[in-house]
Design a protein around this nucleic acid. Structure first.
Lengths: 186, 186
DNA sequence: TATGTGATTGACTAATCAGTCATAAAAGTA
DNA sequence: TACTTTTATGACTGATTAGTCAATCACATA
């Protein structure tokens, strides 16, 4: 782990525990095991560090999807894989997932280039359009479907993480959750 | 508007604009038109003010539901009314709704008594149980259904507030959104 | 009018924090 | 080894902030 990675890693954890402004840069540096000034060598401002933490998580999620998405021609299976992979990643990385939530409902969201943000959604939007074209799901607005799928996935995550489930029960809830979603959309 | 109300009102707006720690108590006092010390007479600490702002919004929503929920014996209509009223309130009070989101994904959430928080959900859980008992919806876990309804409602809000919709189009989206939800659950 | 009471004020303070910078250590190069 | 460049350090600073408190005000009652 490089110093830069150690800083990002520690940031995510501390920002989650104490909020953005509630976490001092000096504390991040200390817990990451680097000097105060070193942090500012990699991230010139605190805001920069917050945005970099967010981007880092988004990139990690993106890679996780790319690495685990087997190329199936079946659109329904592909959509299901997107959702299941997102959910299992969230369950395995609760701190990072919570960071995303906190970031999304913070003023920092608007400091990011919206085009760059939109880039992360494109694969999801593309597959929704594909499902509509193949008449697998209702011909509603792609944006509406995306909003509903995202929030459904989030709601399912909330439920799963609140229950003290075994891995197997978690998988069953995810399966059931997808069935419900699919029933709603087709 | 009493000074206490003015402080809460200003807090909600500023906390939303600049985050919790990004908003100085002195700024809140100034914009609320009261002296610095007055704020601390009503709210002994900043955390106290943040929690009070949250509770104030929850109480307002609760009252909004109580005042507008016509007593129908039809469980489906009652459930629909819950969702539609929550959504129209959110659309009419975007700042307050955003505050709730920010609060929910912040460390302050855990400073509140969880029993008190649960109290606000009870009416919703009761009606879900009722719908299950009447075999209107699938016999899934009440907590799961609550999580799915909440997130569905939130997703629908996200979609509506992003579109530049007229009031009529908003109402149509809400109607459509409920139909989709109902299809999923029954 | 005089007196008592609670609300209101804002200057003040001790503490904290983001960011700087002169110096030093480490790594690279010849 | 001798020299250069890059990376890392941590003490320091100017600015900001939550919370205090002695003084003042508004208003009631007699």
């Amino acid at each position: 782990m490089t110093k830069e990675e150690k800083i990002i890693h520690t940031s995510i954890r501390l920002f989650n525990e104490n909020g953005f402004h509630g976490t001092a840069t000096s504390k991040i540096a200390k817990e990451a095991g680097v000097a105060n000034g070193t942090l500012f060598q990699y991230f010139p401002t605190k805001e920069n560090l917050i945005l970099a933490s967010f981007i880092s998580i988004k990139e990690e999620m993106k890679q996780h999807l790319l690495n685990n998405l087997s190329d199936t021609s079946n659109t329904k299976q592909l959509m299901k894989a997107h959702i299941v992979l997102s959910l299992t990643w969230a369950v395995d990385n609760p701190t990072k997932f919570a960071f995303l939530q906190q970031f999304h409902s913070s003023p920092y969201l608007y400091k990011l280039d919206s085009a760059r943000l939109a880039e992360y959604n494109k694969p999801h939007l593309r597959i929704i359009q594909q499902a509509i074209d193949e008449k697998l799901i209702k011909p509603l607005s792609v944006d509406l479907i995306y909003a509903l799928i995202s929030s459904h996935t989030y709601g399912l995550y909330q439920f799963i993480s609140l229950q003290k489930h075994t891995k197997k029960e978690q998988a069953e809830s995810i399966e059931k959750g997808f069935e419900l979603l699919w029933k709603m959309l087709n």
